[in-house]
């Protein structure tokens, strides 16, 4: 299990490769990457992600440990960045490895659902017209937790 909270970009390919190579006995590896999406019609200038140092690592560890308990996983990985990013930049990734794909897919979805609304990150969008605003949490993100 690996949890990383970092400002620096990560190499998605290299991380996925190393994760897969290290997951001995796994027959399935699922990866997900979150990317900075443009606002309407190319209006986004940058995105800034604030986090709560200490609690972030604690929350991500708890969520990932719970995923390891619920599903039969060989390994799990979460990398989440903070700081300033631009359109197209990778924000975060999760990877799960299991013997069969069902566990890996479900655990990856669980990790995504939980880290969206239970890990202390906040996104702020900076628009090219000079405006900026905090991204609001969606009810759908909170509702997504009820299925687990």
């Amino acid at each position: 299990m690996k949890i990383a909270v970092q400002q620096a970009p990560f190499d998605f390919g290299a991380e996925a490769e190393a994760f897969s190579a290290g997951a001995t006995g796994a027959g399935a590896v699922v990866t997900f990457t979150g990317v900075v999406r443009d606002a309407e019609e190319g209006s986004l200038s940058a995105m800034e992600i604030e986090h709560y140092p200490g609690m972030t690592e604690r929350a991500l560890t708890k969520i990932t440990e719970e995923a390891m308990r619920r599903w039969s996983l060989a390994d799990a990985l979460v990398i989440h960045r903070y700081g300033r990013m631009e359109t197209g930049d990778q924000i975060m990734m999760v990877a799960t490895a299991s013997r069969h794909r069902k566990d890996a897919f479900e655990a990856a979805e669980y990790l995504m659902d939980y880290l969206k609304s239970r890990a202390p990150f906040w996104k702020k969008e900076f628009l090219k017209n000079g405006n900026s605003d905090w991204v609001e949490a969606k009810d759908a993100d909170e509702d997504a937790l009820t299925r687990w």
Partner: peptide, 26 residues
């Protein structure tokens, strides 16, 4: 102390309280 709680929670023994909007990670 870095665990999500409700507003009616007790502050007994608590060293760190944090207030923030709903989280928007991922």
């Amino acid at each position: 102390d870095q665990d999500l709680m409700d507003f009616d929670a007790s502050l007994a023994g608590v060293r760190e309280v944090a207030f923030f909007p709903p989280m928007t990670g991922g």
